[in-house]
């Protein structure tokens, strides 16, 4: 299966339905389906095999695929990330699980120097089709070193594609697309969402990159988000509606590529945009979205674009501090009210 083999004109299956499964199960289904189809695909990471996954994403996969394809790696992120680079150049399709994207920093040389640049440095001879996936972002009281939100850092680097699903349905469809893409994909999950249930259809489907999903409709303001904070936006949208403020909630699904067209389309209707991003604010994805909005749709803005990020401090441990640190519903409501002049 290649990306070009997929019929993208076919509409996606319904988002709502009776088959409710966990986010982690959706990830597992995506990997297992692609592994059954293509024996070049293997899964490697810490505790993915005999432990059944540190967060049980790969539960049962060792039994189905055996230890040569579901591979427990020692705690050597730089080593096994680099091994994946060599294996991918050779022609295999590795899926590398980082228990947390926080630990990917240990593998920075491989994932930032080798993965995104190999195609360019080799003059088009070798790409690096690896999917790196794992938990991203704070929310489990893990303290600052384990709470990294890496999309702000990594989206700066050309050569990568970055997918950040917000629900089980998208997790499955986006991960399947990531595995068949010939380009390297960083796939950012959230430990806080792994148990969340949602509808995932029985039939296989692939979600295209660079196509945002409109998750809530309204004319007053455009909320742009991705990953877990999309759910904060939906909560905020429901509450804002009680005050008569109706918002579009755009789930970007991927930040590289970024579907600026959909943002601009919504903005032309609402005249206001608030970007919700769980990275720190400085040089964040939110900064980039707002820059692109200003470059492409400045004349449609009735209020300066606003951003809601995590607070600009290391992620704290204390439950109340961590809750406040995140781009939570309260911050979003406040920003929207400011944008629509209701504060």
């Amino acid at each position: 299966m290649r990306l070009s083999d997929i019929d993208w004109s076919k509409p996606l299956p319904a988002r709502e339905g009776a088959r409710q499964i966990q986010f982690r199960e959706a990830l597992r289904e995506a990997m297992s389906e692609e592994m059954r189809r293509d024996d070049r695909v293997f899964l490697m990471g810490e505790e993915v095999a005999y432990y059944n996954g540190a967060y049980k994403v790969s539960q049962g996969m060792l039994d189905e695929f055996g230890p040569q394809r579901i591979i427990d790696a020692p705690i050597s992120e730089n080593g096994f990330a680099g091994l994946a680079v060599g294996a991918a150049m050779y022609g295999l399709r590795p899926i590398i699980e980082f228990m947390s994207w926080s630990f990917s920093l240990v593998a920075a040389d491989q994932i930032l120097n080798n993965v995104p640049k190999m195609l360019y440095m080799s003059g088009g001879q070798w790409g690096c089709p690896v999917v790196f996936r794992g938990n991203d972002g704070a929310g489990g009281q893990l303290g600052s070193t384990h709470s990294w939100c890496v999309e702000g850092l990594y989206s700066n680097v050309p050569g990568l594609k970055i997918a950040i699903p917000s629900c089980a349905y998208d997790a499955k469809g986006l991960l399947k697309t990531s595995i068949v893409d010939d380009d390297p994909v960083f796939f950012l999950e959230s430990e806080r969402m792994l148990s969340d249930k949602g509808h995932v259809p029985e039939a296989e489907y692939y979600i295209p990159f660079g196509k945002a999903a409109l998750r809530h409709e309204g004319d007053d303001c455009t909320l742009v988000s991705f990953g877990r904070p999309v759910n904060f936006c939906l909560d905020a949208a429901a509450e804002l509606e009680k005050d008569g403020i109706r918002v579009d909630v755009l789930d970007m699904r991927t930040v590289r590529p970024l579907d600026t067209e959909s943002i601009v389309r919504s903005l032309k209707k609402t005249g206001r945009v608030v970007v919700v991003d769980q990275c720190w604010p400085f040089a964040s994805v939110a900064s980039e979205v707002i820059t692109q909005v200003c470059e492409r749709a400045f004349d449609y803005l009735d209020h300066q674009p606003l951003r809601v990020n995590s607070d600009d401090v290391p992620a704290p441990y204390a439950k109340n501090l961590e809750a406040e640190f995140l781009p939570h519903k309260g911050k979003i409501i406040e920003a929207v009210k400011k944008a629509v002049g209701r504060l």
Partner: peptide
């Protein structure tokens, strides 16, 4: 498979090439 500029960065790649050949 290259020519690599960062000292030592090619060494996990060597393991990966062998891994793939064995696979």
């Amino acid at each position: 498979f290259g020519g690599h500029g960062i000292v030592g960065a090619q060494t996990p790649l060597g393991a990966g090439l062998a891994f793939a050949a064995k696979y």
